[in-house]
Amino acid sequence: MAFITCQDAAFAYEGNAAVSGLNFAVSRGDYLCVVGENGSGKSTLVKGLLGLKAPHAGRVLTGDGLRPNEIGYLPQQTAAQKDFPSSVYEVALSGRLASRGILPFYSRRDRAIASENLERLGVSELRGRCYRELSGGQQQRVLLARALCATKKLILLDEPAAGLDPVMTQELYRLISRINREMGVTVIMVSHDIRSAAMHASHILHLKNRQEFFGSAADYLASEIGRAFAGGSEQRK
């Protein structure tokens, strides 16, 4: 069974269906990219996958040993975080919180995992630095480290490249691909950057308030909708 399976699922926002007709599955090791324009229901789907919003119709099933709170989430940044006094290490360590349950303090193992993930993402020399003083790309790496502290199974990234310049964006995409390939972490990424998505992802889910396409990235580029949205990247190759 797949990690996440949606069966005819629909999610509503304040009573109005934001996205419907969802039929897709995410299996271990997949790299699914959810694409679509603004307001196409991507954020609502994210909430649904995280279990913060119950499906309005149909079902969302988790399986293959994935518990609903084992999804490492990289949310879009909020305004409050821009001036939040916190060290990089504190941010990464907070990813271990869910695994603590009601125990009040972090164990030595939690600290080791946090250090290990900072190391893996190449930001371990920043561990004592203040989070708000980092560049956008460095901040995203720290948040990725935190997501990896929460889980080794599945991470869900909500527009991770928002606000990054093109060079940092490409670097971040390469890093995410590496996490997917080398660590075997399943990735679900929400993006409106369709071209990069098709380049890195194994599967594409295209939303337009309903499911327009779900399948492998290669099939997507060959399909009509893929050709229209990815701007004919096939011919260029």
């Binding site: 995280l50 913060l52 989430y73 869910a98 603590r100 009040p104």
Partner: peptide, 23 residues
């Protein structure tokens, strides 16, 4: 405050993340 320090930190820094991981 002392016992819940880590949870207060998580909820203060990033409520969405904390919520998603089951806090």
């Amino acid at each position: 405050f002392v016992l819940c320090y880590n949870k207060i930190y998580a909820v203060t820094f990033d409520e969405n993340f904390a919520k998603a991981t089951g806090v």
